[in-house]
């Protein structure tokens, strides 16, 4: 049984399947969260074009929280392995900001782990994201961010 958590600056690198250990796994699931091109600017607001999402983490608490969550879910569902990768900083539209790979003996526990992990991560793990709207992108060298009042989602 193994747990791996890695935070990356910017978009995640392309997935490379980890070598198969002699764990007897019959199921390998991988979820990838990508930054969507359109998001509502607020509740009930029309969708706007995104340039990117900017992820903020609180290190080292973020990595520790992800690791504890992964260990708890691995143990409770009897998984063979959980691998978590998450971005911090700016991730452009279309790029991958979150990846969860789960290995287990059968598909049922791996499928359950996906939903359980992501739901709890979104409630409990100290990660925040800000939308950077396409029309608000500044000239090079000039910071530009979404006004504080608005907040949106993206990715998973």
């Amino acid at each position: 049984m193994s747990v791996s958590v890695t935070l990356f600056d910017g978009p995640l690198p392309h997935a490379v399947r980890a070598p198969d250990a002699a764990t007897g796994s019959g199921a390998v699931l991988r979820f990838e969260g990508l930054v969507r091109p359109l998001e509502p600017a607020g509740a009930g607001q029309p969708a706007r074009e995104l340039e990117a999402l900017e992820y903020q983490t609180y290190d080292p608490m973020t990595e520790r929280s992800l690791h504890e969550l992964a260990c708890e879910i691995l143990s409770s569902l009897g998984l063979h392995a959980v691998r978590v990768q998450h971005s911090r900083g700016r991730v452009p539209v279309g790029a991958c900001s979150f990846r969860l790979e789960v290995r287990s003996a059968h598909r049922a526990e791996a499928l359950a782990a996906m939903t359980r992990f992501i739901d709890r991560m979104k409630r409990e793990v100290p990660i925040w994201k800000r939308p950077i709207w396409r029309r608000e992108v500044s000239p090079p060298g000039e910071a530009c961010r979404q006004p504080p009042a608005a907040r949106s989602t993206g990715s998973s």
């Binding site: 969260g33 609180y58 608490m61 979150f98 992501i118 979104k122 925040w128 990715s155």
Partner: peptide, 10 residues
């Protein structure tokens, strides 16, 4: 001490 609120990973 840190305020942990409105988290939104993924």
């Amino acid at each position: 001490i840190a305020l942990i609120a409105l988290v939104d990973g993924g």
